[in-house]
Design a protein around this nucleic acid. Sequence first.
DNA 1: CTGAAAGCGCTTACAG
DNA 2: CTGAAAGCGCTTACAG
Lengths: 329, 329
Amino acid sequence: MDPGRKAVTRADVARLAGVSPAVVSYVLTGSERPVSAAARARVLAAVDQLGYRPNAAARALSRGRSSLIGLIVPDQRNPFFAGMASLLDHAARAQQLTVLILSAHERRSGVEEIEGLTAQPLEGIISADALTPQELRVTERGRTPLVFVNQFRAQPGHPTLSTDYVAGARLAVEHLITLGHRRIAFIGSASQLDPREAGWRQALVDAGLPGGPVLHSEWSVEDGYRAGQQLAERREEVTAVFAASDQIATGALAGLHSRGVDIPGDISVVGFDGTPDAAYTWPALTSVSQPVEEMTRDAVALLATGDLTPMFRDYPATLLVRDSTAPPR
Amino acid sequence: MDPGRKAVTRADVARLAGVSPAVVSYVLTGSERPVSAAARARVLAAVDQLGYRPNAAARALSRGRSSLIGLIVPDQRNPFFAGMASLLDHAARAQQLTVLILSAHERRSGVEEIEGLTAQPLEGIISADALTPQELRVTERGRTPLVFVNQFRAQPGHPTLSTDYVAGARLAVEHLITLGHRRIAFIGSASQLDPREAGWRQALVDAGLPGGPVLHSEWSVEDGYRAGQQLAERREEVTAVFAASDQIATGALAGLHSRGVDIPGDISVVGFDGTPDAAYTWPALTSVSQPVEEMTRDAVALLATGDLTPMFRDYPATLLVRDSTAPPR
DNA sequence: CTGAAAGCGCTTACAG
DNA sequence: CTGAAAGCGCTTACAG
């Protein structure tokens, strides 16, 4: 790397093209400004020849906004959120936007981190995680556009795009009921708020079935494993289980296996999320797929158009039937 | 969001603290500049009261470098690289750095994307993926510091930190040999360059064993699944397999299961990477763990100190013995 | 259709 | 110990 060489600037391009620096900007920003075809061609040729790329910091400073959008997720290592980040990258790219991931797993004191995040003059933030009041205050102070995705409820003051969790959970449980299951357990977060638990319960009530056991678990595979082992103790009582995430379900599969439970022979298992890897568990996991692609696409569009009218929009989930569910024997 | 309110700037802080804007910078940048205790206290109080955070774009512009580092990975959805990103986040945070992920999966034409990446005046790039000559040229043109991690060989002109793949592969194969296996297959990339294949072969030769079958596969779980099915055809001939990644191994597990192969009874399986989820496959996967934490920590340190002397450093891998390996029967 | 100039919010020699 | 000022590389009214 030649430390003597300076980066190419707009002025270099202007000089080579024989125009003023302003004209270079006019051409490159695609502004309304009329530019003669000849000048445009010379600018483009000079850009190409010099390998010029506008300095993002300078552009951000003068525009008051960068081309960066922040994605806040509970844990970027979770395949569901890693997939969301990848899809968001894709959607953002189409709008010339770059995605910065902030994983809550790394958020020490949430506030501090959001501050770090918004010190970049972000074009906007898409949050798949709940924000604390302090965090919300920070985004407001920075007047950073904020869109929520994957939320259990509408977030006051902000557009909120979410999977229809209740209907998705019902899809899972109705599938099990149709197969003939009568005692269906639920594994999920201890939070009373989870609409997946509500959907599970509704489906049972509607079918006139008794509420099965509820096993509380955190979101990790480890916790799913423990829940699976606990569920194995009740194998006489239960023939199926609906887990609130594919991570939990994957762990539960391992926990059940470790206790000698046959799946789906003894117990059928359904997950939630529709992550790709769940197709390669053993047996392949039946799961409710979240419409992440549509949500991320729409979230980016809201940020791009600047339409931040508070609203709540539901996206339907779909059932992916694989090999972890079968009629009870 | 109150569109009438402007972001707090350094000038606001200076005004409230009764000092010049320069003094605010002196205090906040922690520069050598001496500042009286009284002035410092007033500045800090004003910062706190106003909730001031320096504008990152302005700072990047005047310093010529942002506090952003880029991480280039083949696919951010792969748990191994998602984990690396998370660890890097952690290491970077300690140096006040923010990580921008560029997933090759999203790189349309590599060049174009790297250009987009370095248009941000990055503090540096850490690449866990090979770069094309064009891409290298772009980083050089931008004089962006570049450190490679997870490479098969030294990258000329840049520091390269890598797992000792050969020794890691030997660890896996020697474990199988010690268990009593004599016919050990390899599943991995068709690339002749993979040192894991070399390590596998060396271990067999050293033990006086014949080279087992080699099944070529891409890096996805899907491909591992197909390889597992192919391997099932040769179950009479082979009693163990070493896969070049946990993703491949996880797929292979499913592919073997789908053909009725018992693991580890019929065939023992070892993976490579040491990703957390591999502890919850069925059976739990024995794997060679890469020292990602050390590598990312050191890579960030190189970027932070600016020491980019070309060099190659090997990090030892470790074996995690779980339940997918057992003596042949 | 084009250009000179102000301004974005910082950092950092330089002069007190 | 402190401040006025130049400069980082852009965007974008404003005036031709």
